[in-house]
């Protein structure tokens, strides 16, 4: 029944990232956020990224590791928000450790790539993460880029949606929850 449902869900990947999502993902543990104000795009994108991480599992990362290292490259839209919640926000039992990183990418479990990364650098990064157990998220990458990232966030009509490169996820030994795939606007295999 749910398999059939999976097909049905696929292609309908529009997510209305609204206040509810933030309250689920961010507001509960983060009183810093003002829930009464309308959320910014960065906040929405950060909330989606955190939610995606909640449906992601890393094969090579020890379950006992207490932190989840999130590395920021370039200037992702959600960068500030993510940095703001670093050390506070938890994904399961692990605390988010968000930092801007140019090196030591192999220590990161998630790599959020921003708009100002050029093509070569991007490709190098992608190639560098290939085979590494790193969730790559393209948050505001330039047009044309991001398809090689595992997750690519998109903003359409005030909605934040995301696309999934499943082949890339397999190469990076990152497992994505089926429900995540059902919410994805596009899944590349």
């Amino acid at each position: 029944m749910f398999k059939q449902g999976s097909g049905f869900w696929r292609g309908r990947s529009c997510l209305w990232l609204a206040r509810g999502l933030l309250s689920v993902v961010l507001c509960g543990p983060f009183p810093l956020l003002d829930a009464a104000a309308a959320p910014s795009e960065g906040e929405l994108r950060a909330a989606v990224i955190v939610a995606i991480m909640r449906f992601t599992s890393w094969d090579t990362v020890s379950p006992e590791k207490p932190v989840l290292d999130v590395c920021l490259l370039g200037k992702p839209v959600s960068g500030e928000v993510l940095l703001a919640i670093s050390g506070e926000q938890k994904v399961a039992t692990r605390t988010l450790n968000v930092r801007s990183a140019q090196t030591d990418l192999d220590q990161c479990q998630a790599l959020v790539i921003g708009e100002d990364v050029d093509d070569d650098e991007y490709e190098q990064l992608i190639a560098q993460t290939n085979g590494q157990s790193i969730l790559t998220v393209c948050d505001g990458c330039r047009r044309g880029l991001g398809e090689d990232a595992i997750i690519q966030l998109r903003l359409r009509q005030q909605r934040v949606s995301f696309e999934v490169n499943l082949a890339r996820a397999r190469n990076n030994n990152v497992a994505l929850d089926a429900q995540l795939l059902e919410l994805a606007s596009l899944v590349r295999r």
Partner: peptide, 18 residues
């Protein structure tokens, strides 16, 4: 269980479908 993602992402449509 099927509605976890919908609840996480606040996707009421997905929840409705579920």
């Amino acid at each position: 269980n099927r509605s976890r993602a919908a609840l996480e992402f606040g996707d009421t449509n997905a929840g409705q479908l579920n």
